[in-house]
Simulated scan of single mutants.
Amino acid sequence: MDDADRGPWDDVPRGLGVVLDEDRGALPYELIHGEALVACAAWGLGDAGVDLVDGGVSWAAVVESGRDVVLHDALCPMTPPDFIDACLQRARESDHPVVGTRPVTDTVKVVSDGVVGQTLDRDSLVAVASPLVIPAAVLASLPRRPASDLARAVADLEAAGHPVEALQAPPEGRRVSSPDDVRLLAALTQRPA
Rank of each mutant, 00 (worst) to 15 (best):
S141W: 07
A74H: 00
G55V: 01
M1S: 12
T119L: 13
R24E: 01
D51Y: 07
L157E: 09
T189L: 04
R122I: 10
V98H: 05
L157T: 10
V69K: 00
P179G: 06
T107D: 15
G49L: 06
L184W: 09
V128H: 01
Q89S: 13
S65I: 08
H72C: 03
V108M: 12
E30Q: 10
I134Y: 03
E172L: 10
H33G: 15
D5N: 09
Q190T: 14
A147Y: 05
D51Q: 07
G56K: 05
G100E: 08
V164G: 07
W59Q: 04
A153Y: 03
P81I: 03
T105L: 12
L150G: 04
G44P: 02
E93K: 15
D11P: 01
W59P: 01
L75Y: 00
V53W: 02
Q190H: 12
Q89W: 13
P163Y: 14
A147I: 03
A61L: 07
V110T: 14
Q89A: 12
L120V: 12
V62M: 10
A42F: 06
T101G: 06
V164I: 12
P80L: 02
P8M: 09
R152G: 06
R122G: 02
K109L: 14
R122C: 06
F83M: 06
L37T: 02
A26C: 07
P146M: 04
V53D: 02
A193D: 14
A39Y: 01
V116I: 13
P143M: 08
P163N: 14
L132N: 05
A159S: 12
G117A: 10
A153N: 04
P170D: 15
Q168D: 15
G17Y: 00
L52A: 06
V115A: 14
D10C: 06
G100M: 10
V176W: 01
E30T: 03
D3E: 13
C40P: 02
P170V: 15
S112H: 15
L31K: 09
G66F: 09
G15E: 05
M78V: 05
V115N: 12
V104N: 04
S65Q: 07
D54I: 01
D5W: 13
P8W: 11
A91R: 09
L150A: 06
E158G: 11
M78G: 03
D82F: 10
A186M: 04
L142Q: 09
C87W: 03
I84P: 01
C87F: 05
A61D: 14
D156G: 04
S124P: 02
D106Y: 08
V182L: 06
A36H: 11
P131E: 04
V19M: 01
L20T: 00
D73K: 00
D149E: 07
V53R: 01
I32V: 08
A91N: 08
H162Y: 08
L37E: 01
K109N: 14
P28E: 00
F83N: 03
A186P: 10
V38Q: 01
G173L: 08
R183A: 11
V12T: 15
E165Y: 10
R183G: 11
L31I: 05
R92Y: 11
V104E: 11
R183P: 04
P146S: 04
Q190P: 06
S94V: 10
L20A: 01
P192S: 13
P146G: 02
G15Q: 05
H72Q: 11
E22S: 04
A137H: 15
V111S: 09
S124I: 11
D5V: 04
